[in-house]
Design a binder for these strands. Structure first.
Length: 129
DNA sequence: AACCTGACGAAGA
DNA sequence: TTCTTCGCCAGGT
């Protein structure tokens, strides 16, 4: 069976409440990774839990779940899943340009709330000598 | 209590 | 660099 996931609810623990609040904070046009949300919520290794919580509470709490992607800057749904098309459509509507079927330049759109200082000069090693 | 799945992720091979 | 393994967390059977 599909084990009706949506019919049940995630207990509103400190962690789940933090996840819900954090996802709501992600600005329009920006994205966050599951691991990033987990870390901000106080459990750096609970990325899977974040996905689980979104699956259970996204609709109920009207969360911008489409703004949460995996660490590679890609949509974590199977490209065949209906959710995949929906998430991609919504992200594109927010101005995110995909560079592949399911992904985009994470560094270009990632929400940097947890980053106090920018610095860093990514520059590709060999643009052209 | 034991074992399984899942919108994850870092480390190895 | 891609594939596999294993650890995490929440919840289901």
């Amino acid at each position: 069976m599909k084990s009706s996931l949506r019919s049940s609810e995630v207990r509103l623990t400190e962690f789940s409440l933090a996840v819900i609040a954090l996802v709501k904070e992600i600005p329009h046009g920006r994205v966050a990774t599951y691991g990033q949300i987990a870390r901000l919520a106080g459990k750096p290794h609970a990325a899977r839990g974040v996905g689980w919580i979104l699956n259970s509470c996204a609709e109920k709490y009207k969360l911008p779940w489409q703004r949460v992607v995996n660490s590679k800057g890609k949509i974590s749904f199977s490209t065949k899943a209906e959710e995949f098309a929906l998430q991609k459509k919504q992200l594109k509507a927010e101005g995110i340009e995909f560079t592949s079927i399911s992904g985009f330049e994470l560094e270009e759109y990632q929400w940097k709330k947890d980053v106090a200082k920018p610095k860093r000069s990514p520059r590709t090693p060999q643009m052209f000598s």
